[in-house]
Simulated assay, not measured.
Amino acid sequence: MTRPDGPFDDRTPPVDPWATVDRPVPTVYLGDPDATASFSGSNRTTRLPAPDPGPQVSPSASTVHLPADDNPTVRAAGELRFGPGVPVAPQPTPAWPAAAPAKRPRPVWRRLVSVLSSLLTLALVVVAGFYLWQRLRPLEVESVTVAVPRPAGTRCNVTVDVVATVHTNGRSGVLRYQWFRTDAEPGTMLTEQIGTGQRTAALTLHWTFDGTGRTTETATLNLIEPSPIQAGTKVAYNCRRG
């Protein structure tokens, strides 16, 4: 039996029984066919998809404008600034609106037709308004006159007609009136219907005188509606019998 020259070292690592086995290289699938991880001995290589580089900021840029935020961030030559107080780029001045193209002048005959049409329309409006005003205006009394068409003269026991002529505006309505005589009490209330277009109305008082003698009385028309008006005249009676 031969004795070893050196001391016995029992720390020699054991031989890996799988080291001599030709096994396939393990592959790890990470969801992408192009992403594999190969492990072969001490050389372990992992191939993954290249990450999205994202937006690149050039170091030479002095300012980077980001979306509006309460605390903007500015990168200037490799320096980042956060928080308020960072200067904001001025807003561009709005451009002046473009001038509208000049319109061609209208022909003279078209302007003349437009003026005539406007005048005709105005005239029609005035006429229609006046007509409606005439139709809708109420009855009005313009004047009243009282007269004795046939005086009694020297006749005896005679009836004298006292006629009051009322001038109106031609509108329809009702006249309300009464007669006053100096020798009697006020008469009863009477009415007279006025038609459309009727400009005058005759109101007659029949006054009868009897006996002999001479007298002068007064007959007065007291118009109450549509407006209060009074008008009167003298009535003479002279009867001489021998």
Results as ranks from 00 to 15, higher is better:
residue 21 V to N: 12
residue 177 Y to A: 00
residue 20 T to R: 12
residue 56 Q to F: 05
residue 69 D to M: 12
residue 44 R to Y: 04
residue 139 L to K: 00
residue 59 P to D: 06
residue 144 V to Q: 02
residue 85 G to F: 09
residue 229 I to V: 11
residue 1 M to D: 02
residue 50 A to W: 11
residue 139 L to F: 06
residue 129 G to A: 10
residue 121 T to R: 05
residue 14 P to G: 14
residue 64 V to F: 03
residue 206 H to M: 07
residue 217 E to P: 02
residue 22 D to V: 08
residue 174 V to H: 07
residue 96 W to E: 11
residue 188 T to G: 07
residue 171 R to G: 02
residue 83 G to N: 14
residue 34 D to K: 05
residue 22 D to F: 15
residue 28 V to M: 12
residue 62 S to H: 14
residue 125 V to I: 15
residue 92 P to Y: 03
residue 123 A to C: 09
residue 161 D to K: 11
residue 215 T to V: 12
residue 185 E to T: 09
residue 188 T to K: 05
residue 7 P to M: 14
residue 240 R to T: 14
residue 64 V to R: 03
residue 102 A to F: 07
residue 228 P to C: 13
residue 173 G to S: 07
residue 98 A to Q: 08
residue 241 R to H: 10
residue 87 P to Y: 06
residue 169 N to S: 13
residue 120 L to P: 07
residue 162 V to R: 00
residue 240 R to P: 05
residue 167 H to N: 04
residue 121 T to I: 14
residue 133 W to I: 15
residue 142 E to P: 08
residue 189 M to K: 08
residue 54 G to E: 03
residue 185 E to A: 01
residue 181 R to Q: 09
residue 186 P to S: 13
residue 224 I to E: 04
residue 25 V to L: 09
residue 16 D to G: 05
residue 33 P to H: 07
residue 2 T to W: 01
residue 170 G to P: 05
residue 222 N to L: 05
residue 168 T to Q: 11
residue 237 Y to N: 02
residue 55 P to A: 06
residue 62 S to R: 15
residue 201 A to K: 06
residue 130 F to I: 15
residue 156 C to Y: 00
